[in-house]
Design a protein around this nucleic acid. Sequence first.
DNA 1: GATAGTTACGGGTTTCGTAACAATT
DNA 2: AATTGTTACGAAACCCGTAACTATC
Lengths: 316, 316
Amino acid sequence: MKLSHLKALCEIIDKDLHLSDAAFALHRSQPALSRQIQQLEEDLGTILFERSRNRLLRLTPHGEFIVEVARRIVGDASNLRRFAQDAKDQDVGTLTLATTHTQARYTLPRTIQRFMAQYDRVELTLLQGSPVQCCDMVARGQADLAVCAEVYDRDDVIQLPCHQMQRIVVTQPGHPLLSRHPLTLGDICQYPLILYGEGFNGRSVVDSAFQAAGLTPKVTLSAIDADVSKTYVEMGLGIAILASVTFDPDKDTGLRRVDASHLFSSSSLCVVMRPNSYLRNFTYELIRLFAPHITRIQIQQALNRTNLPYSQTPSL
Amino acid sequence: MKLSHLKALCEIIDKDLHLSDAAFALHRSQPALSRQIQQLEEDLGTILFERSRNRLLRLTPHGEFIVEVARRIVGDASNLRRFAQDAKDQDVGTLTLATTHTQARYTLPRTIQRFMAQYDRVELTLLQGSPVQCCDMVARGQADLAVCAEVYDRDDVIQLPCHQMQRIVVTQPGHPLLSRHPLTLGDICQYPLILYGEGFNGRSVVDSAFQAAGLTPKVTLSAIDADVSKTYVEMGLGIAILASVTFDPDKDTGLRRVDASHLFSSSSLCVVMRPNSYLRNFTYELIRLFAPHITRIQIQQALNRTNLPYSQTPSL
DNA sequence: GATAGTTACGGGTTTCGTAACAATT
DNA sequence: AATTGTTACGAAACCCGTAACTATC
């Protein structure tokens, strides 16, 4: 058993059991990967995949557990690498940050600007996606860190809440809702709505608030991000419910907003990390710039929280 | 970086930085191991050992941390192996149990007898040593399990208390202490004592009790185990303070005992396991035979308790 | 026929062990 | 002189990639 075998296994899982894709990602030929898996299966004396129709159909139950441990091993191996790099030069390296459009556009810029000024020898890469995709990227080691709204039912990543996001309603100037005090969900339902697309926290929070009130809003448009939403609000296609950070009175002169924090539950903006990962010094620094109230110790404790590693050991 | 490099590193640590010994243990030549370490150092770009005078002197601070992670990786790799064997045949394999003389002789025999009857295809190996040595063997993966008295200040192993050991005083028949009610530490101090050697829990418990009472017993003999102690008591060389399990009225006809549980703190008899290790099914069964009141879930929860893994990350 | 994975084979790299070397005790 | 770790070198093992093959859709 070698590390390369375990890396191959993990990559195949990440690529949804497509051996060819995994081979490409690992800069290997398909036959090479095929043999890696065969060798691993022979070495362990266990079948990892259910095969047929010339495809890998799914993991066997044993395979599931083996992947779980393999992930830890591969993760630890990359921890070693990162640690060694830190030991050589704290301030040189790469940092890959996954985040959503909203955060990349509104909450992160100042943090990133300051980070790049201070750590000019760190190559920073931003990846963009939905919160779920961000978590995936972190879990798979494609990103070192993610900043996004909390995702529920994910025990493969550590989500450390660091800010609370409030909702506002954004309208054209002179809109009737602006003079409604207090604003209610019923008021909002009078007008066509522009919301985030499915899969975003901003959408589900809004949906569940209306559902709890027994109301069915007229959703005109599912926009991809806050900028698009604002554009359409400005054009008069409807009103939008957005995170308060996305509105800047100085810049959004063609729009007005009204607080809606009492109508929708606030959602946590989290720093997302891979469990038991070793963070480089400058990664801690980035988190500190973004959320100064979170201590390094708190981060480390969160990192090392075991969330059911071997607990669900199969009964065999 | 390959698993063999990390295994080599761990083995060298286990062999107290003696490269030759580690090479022998790994069935490799010394030059091979020497190069493994060089390759690992080059690969990580970090010096692992302080060398000079043709010896490995000690680990560098970076090396310390790297060994910590390497241990986890190597441990996980052997977890994979054990799991795969379990998947093939639950009831075939090897089980290495480290324990102290007292447990091997008095508390474990029935358990082991029943275990061997039920799992006749499991090759059971017993290793003997002091509790500290037993913990070492478990931490290094030389033993799958240990049964011994609790060892304090060990965070590299999981110690799960499963029984309480009480102390008795063992004397010759007709000894004055037998009619002392209640027995006091002062009474005991009147007579020459035979105790366990240093490093055993049975010794430290007794020592601290006398120290707390401001008494200094006359220790005639530091015996290696309960059988030796009893032999010398029978010969009239003194009285012994032993665990109650070591006395059998039917067999120890030449001796008498009196309870001393109120004088010495009871010590925990523990099952000792390597953190985050995968235990084979029959290993759980052995524990169940020994301590039926401990559930498999409790064991798994204990196994996964993180005891400061990366928390003490060096400040570099 | 196109796609996805497996088997066959030649070439290159890796890594081992033996042997020679260097540096301490 | 004995012990311990490092360097040198030839042989064996390993692993990769190309190419051919097999089985589905």
